[in-house]
Simulated assay, not measured.
Amino acid sequence: MDMRSPRGIDKAVMEHLTDGGWINRRENLLTTGPTGLGKSSIACALGHNACRDDRRVMYHRVLRLFHALAIARGDGRHARVLKSIELTDLLILDDWGLSVITTTDHRDLLEILEDRQGRGATIVTSQLPVDQWHEAIGDPTLADAIHDRLVHNAHRLNLTGDSV
């Protein structure tokens, strides 16, 4: 990973994340910051590294995941799709919070996170700072539940600087 661009990333933190121990401990990684700083690239690089370590990795852009889950709900595959997500060692949810999503989508997200809690690691990338996630979700009860399952055991990368 190119660490020459100033993005507010501590090299020691990246080395810690690259070693993959946090995936073994089923911890999460929340990567936030403005567009163009490499949040998705970092998530994909960590996912690629996990693949090389023989871990099962799944990548989804959040809006496409919710669209796929809606289709799966309609054709009877919903439970099977959720199970495949649950069994992944590392789930990457890219571009969370870019668009308004439905209450059903938030419930699917909560179900995914609930199923994965203690079973797998999750990376979330977002342009929204974590302290704005409650507002983005809207429903305070769902927001609390989602926030609790993501944040309590999460490493955080808050990227800063100019677009690279």
Rank of each mutant, 00 (worst) to 15 (best):
K39N: 09
I85M: 10
L37F: 07
P34C: 05
S126C: 08
G118Q: 11
Q127I: 06
W96P: 00
D10L: 07
P140S: 14
L65R: 05
G36V: 11
R61E: 13
D89I: 00
T32K: 01
A70F: 02
M3E: 09
N24L: 12
G138A: 08
I112W: 01
T103P: 00
D54S: 13
A43N: 09
T35D: 02
L90R: 05
K11E: 14
R116D: 06
L82H: 06
R116T: 06
L109D: 01
H155N: 12
G8Y: 10
A145Q: 06
W96V: 08
A45F: 09
N49G: 13
H78E: 12
T104Y: 04
R119F: 03
L17C: 10
G97R: 03
T103D: 14
D75F: 00
S40N: 05
T32S: 13
L157P: 06
L157H: 07
I92K: 03
R7D: 08
F66P: 02
V62G: 00
S41H: 15
D53Q: 15
D115R: 15
D2F: 10
R26D: 01
W96Y: 10
S41G: 06
L87V: 02
N153H: 15
H134N: 12
I146V: 15
S126T: 15
T104F: 02
P129D: 13
S126G: 07
H155Y: 15
W96F: 15
T122I: 10
L30F: 11
V100A: 14
R119A: 12
I137K: 08
V13Q: 14
L29C: 08
T103N: 13
T31G: 03
A50P: 04
Q117D: 15
R73S: 13
W133C: 11
A145N: 09
L69T: 05
R26W: 03
M3I: 12
L63Y: 01
L109P: 00
H60Q: 12
D95R: 03
T103H: 12
A143D: 06
G74T: 02
W133T: 11
L110R: 07
R52F: 08
S163R: 08
T35C: 12
A143C: 11
G76F: 04
A70S: 15
L30D: 01
N158I: 07
Q127N: 15
D10C: 07
G47R: 05
V100M: 09
A12G: 13
L30Y: 10
T18A: 13
D148A: 13
D108H: 09
L113Y: 00
G36M: 10
V130A: 13
R116I: 02
V164P: 11
H106D: 04
L82I: 14
W133S: 11
H48L: 13
I146A: 06
S163P: 06
T104C: 03
